[in-house]
Design a protein around this nucleic acid. Structure first.
Lengths: 177, 177
DNA sequence: ATTGAACTACCAATCGATAGATAGACTGAT
DNA sequence: ATCAGTCTATCTATCGATTGGTAGTTCAAT
């Protein structure tokens, strides 16, 4: 019903498959069932669409993660973020949106690059606080380790077309807290 | 001197910055100082150029890594592969070529996707043998963990524009052998 | 004379983006 | 209640630029 939302849905899927340089307004329009001029009406430039898509992606992630410093055990929190990435692989067969954007970060329009950076900063902060609440000796390093492991595992499991690779690679995520 | 090599050099740089969908024959031609028709002479299609670029990238990596089962201590071997990835970040300011390609794997022409997959398989095999030679309890899992950590650390350090992030994220690579 | 490697010139298709028209829904004054 | 004016969201049509790719030519080296 909401065309604007449907446009972001289509853009998210396209970017997660082919990156920012790998989709066009006409493809998005065809996905949604409108003309490309209508997509430009909602998002004047491709940068606007990319930034809006990344912003919504971050918002939805944070909703799924919940409070980083609540009473849940660290293992539960880590399983939660791990499940989000794993679902992207198993359910959608797609990259993390910002993983795809991050791979081409230095060729992105400024607003898209900024949103991508914000995504990773927010992920790092959430993980750092989760680790710190658990009394981790180096929560900052643990946070970037965990984040790198998740993004890398997704990238490689998808490239090798093997979910087992993701599970093998993320075994550590439970234990190095 | 060798135009063909210069074309692959340019393609490698472009792909590592903007991905497979983010460069054109005309850009490559301009980089090298020839016309786009000359690039097509050496590489008839974009898929040919992409696959050749990935193949050379793998070959150069394997040369840098050396024998996976020689007498070097595991820590030295891991430092070697870690340095290769770190150099890509610090010296070139670029992604791993196959990290960039892997992020868009399901939208790549078949020959390029295949070469990308081969790259990760070769990396995994090298790491698995290095871990196994050292008596690691689960060399297969350790190999994909290490590979995921390296690719993920590169991706996130570049996105956050902070080399420290790479070093923090890859601290584990030495100890979990 | 043949060949490798470059060139000029072009193709149809697609790119992101814009202009202008239109149909319907809402708003406020009569 | 009606009508004029405005707004929203879409459309058709088009722009100049660029895309991957091709045909045919030139020229130096063998």
């Amino acid at each position: 019903m909401n065309i604007r939302t449907a446009i972001i849905d289509a853009a998210e899927a396209r970017i997660r498959i082919a990156g920012f340089h790998g989709f066009s307004f006409r493809e998005i329009a065809a996905d949604v069932g409108v003309k490309s001029a209508s997509v430009h009406y909602h998002f004047p430039t491709k940068a606007d669409l990319g930034a809006a898509t990344a912003a919504r992606y971050l918002q939805l992630l944070l909703e799924q993660l919940g409070d980083a410093i609540d009473a849940r055990p660290l293992a539960v929190k880590l399983d939660t973020i791990k499940a989000v990435f794993r679902n992207g692989l198993v359910r959608d067969g797609m990259m993390c949106l910002c993983g795809a954007l991050g791979a081409e970060i230095s060729s992105l329009p400024a607003p898209v690059a900024l949103q991508t950076k914000t995504f990773f900063e927010e992920c790092r902060t959430w993980l750092r606080r989760a680790f710190a609440t658990n009394g981790n000796v180096d929560p900052d390093a643990s946070a970037v380790q965990c984040l790198a492991l998740l993004e890398g595992a997704l990238l490689i499991a998808r490239s090798l077309d093997d979910v087992v690779v993701f599970d093998q690679a993320t075994l550590l995520a439970k234990t190095h807290g």
